[in-house]
Design a binder for these strands. Structure first.
Lengths: 111, 111
DNA sequence: TTGACATGAAACCAAATGGTTTTATATAAT
DNA sequence: ATTATATAAAACCATTTGGTTTCATGTCAA
């Protein structure tokens, strides 16, 4: 049961390209901060902050092993994104039926 | 063929809750700025800016009709998000294999 | 043509974001 | 014990973001 009252949600967490790259790296397996940092030009501190944000969104979790802190991917929150997207499926999968609907119900087209 | 050299990508565009609500409203059909604004407490100008951002991400398109500008949903760019998500499917679909890994390596399970 | 409506555009602002450098602390290795 | 490694935490900074207010412009209606 991860933290609540999170500052960052999945949408925000995933909006940053650096964080997306971090997630991709972690998809390959657990990694300590230094190893992650080695794939970027920015400082380790910057990466640590991104990890903190990803952590708040529950997209990663970290555990200390010796002197290093290893992070692993926690993809579950992506489900929320997936479900959000699912709503829009009908708007471009079978676009014709939607168009048909709109044409047949023009009164629903204002507000 | 929509604009290029866009400042906002889909990830950023969708990161803001106000913009997600705007998309949802437009899912119900084409709407002018004023009508959209009526669903929020913030100013019309603010909404217009959000629409501009959504427009840069090609998630909406606007056309002038008389004195009003009507916006409609353009869901196609969401496909990019969908594909990005698809990559992570395998990381939680077969969650059992992950669990198995954790159980078999308890020494990695503190913090 | 006069006024109301719908939008556009610009200037401005506070807070958030994404980065830095510096300092401190815990662990590992020699 | 000493030094090197890995991280944490804090202070700082520039830019971006998300909002505002104000003013200008185009269109519709009376």
């Amino acid at each position: 049961m991860s933290s609540s009252a999170e500052k960052y949600d999945v949408f925000q967490a995933v909006a940053d390209p650096t964080r997306r790259k971090v997630l991709q790296l972690l998809a390959g397996g657990e990694l300590p901060i230094s190893a992650i940092t080695s794939h970027f030009t920015m400082s380790r501190t910057a990466i640590a902050k991104h990890l903190h944000i990803l952590s708040e969104a529950d997209l990663v979790s970290g555990r200390k092993v010796g002197r290093e802190k290893r992070f692993r991917l926690q993809p579950e929150p992506l489900e929320e994104l997936k479900q959000w997207l699912a709503f829009y499926d009908r708007f471009w999968d079978n676009k014709l039926s939607i168009l048909k609907h709109v044409v047949e119900h023009p009164e629903e087209t204002n507000d």
